[in-house]
Every structure is written in structure tokens, then in C-alpha cells.
Design a protein around this nucleic acid. Structure first.
Lengths: 250, 250
DNA sequence: CCCTGACGTTCGACATCGCCGAACGTTGGT
DNA sequence: ACCAACGTTCGGCGATGTCGAACGTCAGGG
């Protein structure tokens, strides 16, 4: 047997879906054959979760942005197009290679790659899959994912001596990323190289992608293993800039 | 106080919204900190209302088309663009003027207008508002609307001697339209002129617009007031054709 | 081949929660 | 000034939602 109040909420949402200009409470009560106070309770909850909005002037209800957002997971191409300028700028300002990754099963998939601006020989890595647990981007995607790390089937393979190979070690890195708002990969994928990443978000809390800088360890981190001064701020600001473009209506 | 099971359903939907590839039940239970059977009950209901779908092979759940449809009320410009070919064709086949209208408050707003194909002098009426109760398109929009006619504030003004001016008379015409799948306006707006309309639907049951033919009464109806043979079929088929284009992914 | 673990699903007891009637304040129209 | 209709609030009550226990299935490992 189905849950009555969830079915009723869906009926209300269907009615609102057919009325882009919104409906008054009385019409929704009539359309659902429920008491006004019953419909009001449903609407109050739907407003609270963002699925419905109420016009403060007229009192009419209509579908909210929260439900419109649901059906639109970020298209990686859209993400890439919105990130290109910010990524180029970040490469210029840091002198490091810049990558944009999204969650792809149990890996990070690189959807955009900006070369290190120094004319050294480099290889384009767009499309490449990288391990979640051994990259800064992967740690960020894990840290700001609705599904907890504990539940994910991640093969904690060893890439260098510094790769986290236990769930406890990984959990610790993920918690640090959650706390700081960015993540560091310190020679966990390749010896002598480090990375720093920040989340690109469409909605508060959940990462749609991860923007990262990657380079020789001494250009990313201090000898103590902390980000070079100002670097984390630059990456976070660039990622926030991309997040802003995702929220724009285009 | 909000309704707990509606909030919990929204949480499940948010989790699924962030995972376009779908999630297993166990992950949803972990992500919501609820018992598996609790989440299962929520999911069963969400599947029933079309907001969630379950992959029969893997058992994983993901957002359903029912919720994606919600956030997309038909844009009148989109409707107009999808209807142009069918409307032209209908005008050619019937020799009558063709109009496409959408619900606009308590009126029909004409979003597309094809002239009667006989070189007679005519005036473009796109953008015009017409009364719901006195037009075939209006009767169709009322008949296939989620909000019952009874609740609508419609001023039953008299346009001709045949305009319905009581709620009972209007309700009768609306019920006939619901039954037949099309509606007739027999000199209810202007003496000597009649119209016939069919619903354009994005989803089953609800009209996104109404496609109609309008002309001298004797070209639309028989002396007995019934549609001329084959005319209703032509209009219904043309409207269904437009409905098909709305369901296409473009 | 067998066993085990993890999955999604079902069922029923029980306590919580959702429903709704009554009443209210506000607003707009006559 | 009055009235009707609106959205909102509150609390009693019983219907419903929650969830632990158990189940069948399936895939993987020994």
C-alpha cells in the first residue's frame, strides 16, 4: 500500500505542473477533493523543501525552483563550457596545470584540461579516468557527495607509497576536505607531484564537479605539506565562479 | 510542523537528483539514515506516482520522467513553433481559418493564427484574448484542465443570443467536450460563425493548448448543429500531431 | 558445488503522525 | 459598514507510517 501523504503531495504537484501561472489554495483543495487545511499542510511542507513557492502578494502557489533543479543533473558539456574561462584564468594566475573532473562511477572523469602555461611538452588528458582516492579532485567529489564514502565500492589500489589504502585513511582525508572546503593530494598518484581541488556546486552542499590545479609538489605545497600561500583561495574562488555560472539562467 | 513523510520523500528525490546514474536502495537508506523498509515504502510510492523509476535488471532507482515533466510547463512560443506545420496543413485541408490558443487566466490567448486560404481580407489575431465560455478553444481548455470549471471565476457575459450565460449551461458544454474529445462553438461568439477545437496535450488528460478551426457556421456545422462529416476527425488528428511533437526530445 | 553476505521486498505491531473541522484574521468587493 | 472568501492555525483523534524481523534471490568466494 502506498503512502497517502506522498501520493497527495504528488497530486498537488501535478496540478501545479499544469498551471505555470500558479493556483490559489482553494483551487488546489477543489482539484484534490481534500480539506483546505489538509492541502495547506501539504503545501507548507512542499514550500519548505523548495518544491513549491508561494507568491507573497497574491497567496497563489506555483512550482518552485527546487523541483526544477531536480530533473537537471549537470551535463558535463555544460559544466565544461561554463568552466573554460575560469580554468584558463586559474592556469594563468597559478602557473599550474588546471583540470575539471566529474564523478563517473568509482572514478574521476576529466572533462576539461588546461595546460600548464610554460610551453613545456604536455599531453591532453580530457576524457581520462582517475582514481577517486588518489586525486585531490576525487577527494572533493567524495567529500561533497550525497552518498557517504563508506558505502562506495572503491578499490583502494596503491599508486605511490603515499596513496591511502585503508578506508580509515581515506575517511580522514575526506573529512578534512569537508572541513576545509578543498582537498590536497600529496604525491598520492605520482611521486613528486601534488594537486589541490575545490568543489564546483550547482546547489549548496553537493559538488557537480571538482576544479583542481596539479603540478610539481614544491609548486603546489610548502615543505610542510600545506598549500602554498594564497593557492587554496585562488582555486576556491575560481570554482565558486564556475558555480555562479551554473546558477545563471541561460 | 511539516509532514515527515513528504520531507523524507523530498530528501530521497534530492539524493536521486544528484545521481543521474541512479542509486541502490541501500545507498538511499544510508544517505537518509532511515530503515531500508522505510525507504522502500517511500520509493514504492514515488515509483507509483512516476517521480522515480526502478531499473528492473539492477534494482537501482533513479528520477522518473514524471518529475521531469513537472518542471516543464509548455512555453507558448515552443507550442506555436511545434504547431505551425500542422496548423497550415489543417487550414489547407479544411479551407477554414485555424487558431491555436492557450489558457491565460480567465481567457483564451491566441498564440498562432492561420488565415482562411481564400485571399479574402482578414486580420491577424495572434495575441488576442477571447472568452473561455464563448469559444470552442475555451471549452476545450476548460474541459481538459486540472482545475474544475466550477471553481473558475468566469464572467459569463453574453456575446450573442446563443452564448451560455449560466454555469449549468457551461458545465453541460464542458462535459460534452470531455466526452467527445473536441468542442463546438455554435454562434456563441459571433452570429453566423462557428468553431470546432481539439486539445493539444503534453501529458495525457491535460491540455497545453487548443487547436481550432473557425468559419461561417454552414462551413463548420450541418444545419442540425453537428460538425460537418470528417471535420472533427481532421482537427483531432491535427491536434494529436502537435501533441506528438511536444513529446519529442529536441 | 556450496555457503555466505548483501540485496530488495514483505508483513504486522505499535506509536506517532497526518487529517480535518472549527475558528480566526485579513482582504477585497458591494 | 458588512459580508464572503481567502489563507492560516490549532488540537483531538484515529488512521497511517515506521521499522524490526524475516524472507527469497543472486552473485561472489572458497
Amino acid at each position: 500500500m502506498s503512502i497517502q501523504s506522498v501520493v497527495r503531495s504528488a497530486t498537488v504537484l501535478h496540478l501545479l505542473g499544469a498551471a505555470p501561472e500558479g493556483l490559489p489554495l482553494a483551487d488546489l483543495a477543489a482539484g484534490t477533493d481534500l480539506a483546505k487545511s489538509t492541502v495547506h499542510g501539504l503545501l507548507r511542507t512542499l514550500v519548505e523543501v523548495g518544491f513549491v513557492e508561494q507568491d507573497p502578494d497574491t497567496g497563489r502557489y506555483r512550482l518552485g525552483s527546487g523541483i526544477e533543479d531536480l530533473g537537471t543533473a549537470v551535463d558535463p558539456h555544460l559544466l565544461r563550457s561554463r568552466a573554460m574561462n575560469g580554468a584558463d584564468s586559474l592556469a594563468a594566475r597559478t602557473g599550474l596545470e588546471v583540470r575539471l573532473g566529474v564523478l563517473a562511477g568509482d572514478s574521476v572523469e576529466l572533462v576539461h584540461h588546461v595546460f600548464r602555461p610554460d610551453n613545456s611538452p604536455q599531453r591532453l588528458r580530457t576524457g581520462e579516468l582517475l582514481p577517486l582516492h588518489a586525486t585531490a579532485a576525487g577527494l572533493v567529489l567524495l567529500a561533497f557527495s550525497p552518498v557517504s564514502t563508506v558505502r562506495r565500492r572503491i578499490e583502494l589500489s596503491s599508486w605511490t607509497a603515499r596513496t591511502p589504502t585503508t578506508r580509515a585513511a581515506l575517511a580522514q582525508l575526506v573529512r578534512a576536505a569537508q572541513r576545509r572546503g578543498w582537498a590536497v593530494a600529496d604525491e598520492t598518484l605520482r611521486p613528486g607531484r601534488a594537486g589541490l581541488a575545490a568543489p564546483v556546486r550547482q546547489r549548496a552542499g553537493v559538488a557537480a564537479g571538482a576544479l583542481s590545479v596539479v603540478g610539481p609538489r614544491e609548486e603546489v605545497l610548502t615543505p610542510a605539506g600545506e598549500p602554498r600561500p594564497g593557492l587554496a583561495d585562488l582555486v576556491v574562488a575560481a570554482a565558486d565562479g564556475v558555480s555562479e555560472t551554473l546558477r545563471e539562467r541561460r
